[in-house]
């Protein structure tokens, strides 16, 4: 067991974890942050995407101990004072989710994408989301949501 201290969604947690515990399991099982989900075992689906010190990571591919001393933001920490993050609002407005299973990861990745490139083209958006799978939406409205959040014109 290793002791770690992590800032998650603006709160500090100190816990004993097994060295092999993945960040996603730490979040879900020890902290009850079940908004972040697991969709695969090969780091391909992106369902588990969170921010580590402001950059997106696949939390199934990071050990909890690697987050020691760092700051994690999950989907649950995005809305501030009951106000949705603009990306959350855009996903809602553009109907960019159906079952919603990919959504937490998709939103976290989309925010990272705009942080890197505030006005991406459709092609850049598609490339930037390549590591996040969605089986429901065909990505059409997800692309629209990212365009909307970036303040760009959106085709229908």
């Amino acid at each position: 067991m290793t002791r770690i201290t992590v800032q998650v969604d603006d709160e500090s947690y100190t816990d004993e974890v097994e060295p092999r515990t993945l960040l996603v399991h730490y979040l879900r099982e020890q902290l009850g942050k079940t908004g972040t989900v697991v969709g695969c075992d090969t780091s391909n689906c992106g369902a588990c995407t969170v921010h580590l010190d402001g950059r997106s990571v696949k939390s199934c591919n990071v050990l909890a101990v690697q987050a020691d001393g760092h700051e994690v933001t999950t989907i649950e920490g995005l809305a501030k004072n009951g106000e949705l993050h603009p990306m959350q609002a855009a996903f809602h407005e553009c109907h960019a989710l159906q079952c919603g299973y990919c959504t937490p990861g998709m939103i976290m990745q989309s925010i990272d994408l705009l942080n890197e490139n505030p006005t991406p083209t459709e092609k850049e958006i598609r490339a930037g989301l390549e590591g996040n799978l969605c089986r429901c939406t065909g990505y059409h409205n997800i692309v629209r949501a990212v365009q909307t959040a970036s303040g760009q014109e959106v085709a229908s």
């Binding site: 079940t34 989900v37 949705l84 996903f91 809602h92 989710l97 959504t103």
Partner: peptide, 19 residues
Amino acid sequence: RLRKEDQRLITGRTKWTDN
């Protein structure tokens, strides 16, 4: 109509069986 079910899904307040 924008979907009623979105609010919980975009904020992570979900009830998947594994939760």
